[in-house]
């Protein structure tokens, strides 16, 4: 349970970083922290205390194996979400470079040419 609480703490930290910081790069870092806390949550869902890695080796009984191994599905899901996170991160970095080129600042409160 403690692990889940700590994970939610990380999630909260990420939200705080995203909302309170005005620097573009810090906002991106906040975004990444949120993402990783959710990934960690997914890993925790599939984790089994004293479990073994879900890799079947030759000669092992699959039924016994399935009762001691950790759940591999969340790990596959996390890998996918990490890949997606990588794409988002790359796009955010590209956006922040472009924004810097146009506005000459990383301060989000000075990037306010949109009206209405």
């Amino acid at each position: 349970m403690l692990l889940y609480i700590l994970d939610m703490l990380v999630f909260g930290l990420g939200i705080y970083c995203l909302i309170a910081k005005r620097h573009l790069i810090k906002k991106i870092i906040g975004m990444v922290i949120i993402e990783y806390s959710v990934n960690l949550f997914l890993i925790l869902v599939g984790y089994r205390i004293n479990g073994i890695a879900p890799i079947l080796s030759p000669g092992e009984n699959p039924i016994v194996f399935s009762q001691v191994a950790v759940d591999p599905l969340p790990q596959a899901l996390v890998l996918t979400s990490i890949v997606i996170g990588l794409g988002t991160l790359a796009l955010m970095s590209a956006y922040s470079i472009k924004l810097y080129e146009k506005y000459r600042t990383f301060d989000m409160s000075e990037i306010n040419r949109l009206k209405g």
């Binding site: 956006y95 922040s96 472009k98 924004l99 146009k102 990037i111 306010n112 949109l114």
Partner: peptide, 10 residues
């Protein structure tokens, strides 16, 4: 890639 578009996109 105009400044307003980038801001909205971000």
């Amino acid at each position: 890639v105009e400044s307003e578009e980038l801001e909205a996109g971000f």
